[in-house]
Write a protein that binds this DNA or RNA. Sequence first.
DNA 1: CATTAACTCTACTAATTATATAGAATTAAT
DNA 2: ATTAATTCTATATAATTAGTAGAGTTAATG
Lengths: 137, 137
Amino acid sequence: MLSHKTKYALKALLYLAQQEEGHIARTIEIAEGANIPKKFLEQILLELKRGHFVSSKQGKLGGYYLIKSKNTITLADIHRLFDGAIALLPCASLNFYEPCSDCTTESECSLRHGLLTIRDETLKAMQGITIGTLIKN
Amino acid sequence: MLSHKTKYALKALLYLAQQEEGHIARTIEIAEGANIPKKFLEQILLELKRGHFVSSKQGKLGGYYLIKSKNTITLADIHRLFDGAIALLPCASLNFYEPCSDCTTESECSLRHGLLTIRDETLKAMQGITIGTLIKN
DNA sequence: CATTAACTCTACTAATTATATAGAATTAAT
DNA sequence: ATTAATTCTATATAATTAGTAGAGTTAATG
């Protein structure tokens, strides 16, 4: 399941992607438009900024705006930024790999191979969903 | 990601599936064989029993054994028993459906449609992995 | 029928993570 | 100087996860 943070991030990106070109949206505007707690959204927008999905203008008349095309921001990207690995175990992860502490005695984790399959399929599906496709439906 | 509980459940089932026909495995035996904290495993085995994946024999010489074919126990089944929904949001779930509290104002949740696609693909993949296929690799 | 060794059940604890909230600092427009 | 926005760090609270404790129940065995 997605954390609220990831869900809110997606909704914030959807909001931004639906504004007209050049519009700078204030946090409070996004919060009210997408029904997200404002102070929580502040943190989320900062993380989206550090992740290079949005940028901001400071000071009065400041706010946030997309800096990537809505068709290139995938569900996989946002999941990884906020919820981390897409794989079901760290040992099956591409971007967040860690060996299992409880599998060292076996030659290899008995679950890993099957979970690699799942990861590949899920990742492919998640890379097929973008902010753009979410808006279209 | 899978919780430890789900991971341990899978490892316990793998252990049981690899015993010879008719063998009854004690909790301590499974715990040591699969490197799972024993008291935690007790709870997990009880849940697997309530889920009708295993059965038990009580008293001295008692223990646990599989009551479903290893090829019919899927990753999706075990995920649902311990970690719940496979979908990324409750509103996109088949078995754990709940409406989103923060989407009531919109005609429908803007994320739901895309997440239904993900759920379908992930579910199909997870139904393709069984205890049997995990043993084979 | 007492002993032993197993599962069963409920409650509890500890640690971690998720979900925020508070408030001061910084930035920039007017 | 004022106003209104982002930025940053710390804190608070709640929920979940992970694991432990211990008493109760069941059944084999001598």
